[in-house]
């Protein structure tokens, strides 16, 4: 069940939330819409769900033009950042909602709800109300509720944004496993690059209402098409005007070919990794090395060393234009 978005624009008053956005999301994939807040990714997701009407452009779901369909007829499952739990219903009735309004037989509903609660590990909470659940449990309930109607596509808007760090990590891994099991085409919005890299097959980077780049996590990390994408997807530092990943900087205590002198201005140990702040002819930069390297070079404040970036960002084939995936 693929999703195709073509030439979609959406304005809120003077604010251009989306400008001529085109994205293809292949059937069965797990795609992240990644970008800074206000970049248009949530709006794009809501346009796909039918919760917003685009000013122009087309949305196709499973090959069918859905642009003017109301949300209830698009066959999408939508999970909200703040859960949108039906507060007056038990967990069980929340999950059953989509089925009960379709007037499915009671027994079938009961069976399906039981399955889903098992899937999201909430069996023993069936008769509780949302207010009696933790944030993570509520979000799993919301997910089960969205899956109950067997949506063609599953859309998640910052699904873990309101949860604390530990729960967020757990749910991420769990979402990945769930997707491997259920295989429904899934799109989730996040502003957390780590989350996108860890969970998604494919990442759509968005900012200022436009798509900046589309690709697999590795492609984006290795071959970012712009400084923006590079700095958004991971730590960067600047050496001689070029962006470099701090872990792609080699450190030597003797001059080497292509290496330039630098002064260590500070050494910070962060467990296994060591952050080395550098002064290169008055410019500040930093490198990330292993503890072993740091000890081997006997790095300390004020020490003169030589550094050599391994690869700086080079323009690659992956352009900001959306890829055709079908």
């Amino acid at each position: 069940m693929s999703i195709k978005v073509a030439g979609v624009s959406k304005n809120f008053g003077d604010f251009a939330a989306l400008t001529d956005v085109s994205v293809d999301i292949p059937s069965g994939s797990l795609t992240a819409l990644l970008g800074p807040s206000g970049g248009g990714k949530s709006t794009l997701l809501r346009v796909i769900a039918g919760l917003e009407q685009p000013d122009s452009g087309v949305v196709q779901i499973d090959g069918v033009d859905a642009t003017v369909l109301p949300p209830q007829r698009r066959g999408v499952g939508f999970v909200f950042q703040h859960y949108a739990a039906f507060k007056h219903m038990t967990v069980e009735r929340n999950v059953a909602f989509g089925l009960s309004i379709r007037h499915k037989p009671k027994a079938e509903i009961r069976e399906r709800v039981r399955e889903l609660l098992e899937l999201v590990h909430l069996e023993q909470f069936a008769h509780r109300y949302p207010s009696q659940l933790s944030g993570g449990q509520r979000q799993r309930m919301a997910l089960a509720r969205a899956l109950a109607v067997e949506p063609k596509v599953l859309l998640l808007d910052e699904p873990f944004g309101a949860l604390d760090a530990q729960v967020r990590k757990e749910l991420r891994a769990w979402l990945r496993r769930l997707h491997d099991k259920v295989h429904v085409t899934t799109v989730f919005v996040t502003h957390d690059q780590e989350e996108a890299m860890e969970v998604a097959d494919e990442i759509v980077v968005m900012a200022d209402g436009v798509v900046k780049q589309v690709g697999s996590p590795d492609e984006l990390y290795e071959r970012p098409s712009s400084d923006f994408v590079m700095s958004f997807l991971g730590p960067v530092t600047r050496i001689g005007g070029e962006l470099v990943r701090p872990h792609d900087i080699e450190l030597f205590d003797e001059p080497e070919a292509g290496a330039r002198p630098a002064t260590v201005s500070r050494v910070t140990r962060l467990g296994f990794e060591v952050r080395v702040d550098l002064d290169i002819d008055g410019e500040e930069a930093w490198a990330q090395v292993t503890r072993g390297t740091a000890e081997h070079l006997a790095l300390e404040q004020g020490k003169q060393i030589f550094i050599r970036p391994q690869h700086t960002r080079t323009s690659v084939a992956a352009s900001s234009a959306p890829r055709s995936t079908s």
């Binding site: 039918g50 919760l51 949300p71 999408v76 949108a84 039906f86 909602f97 989509g98 969205a146 109607v149």
Partner: peptide
């Protein structure tokens, strides 16, 4: 949001 959630579920 609850109303929107219900809409996406087909209500």
């Amino acid at each position: 949001e609850q109303e929107q959630a219900a809409a996406t579920l087909g209500a």
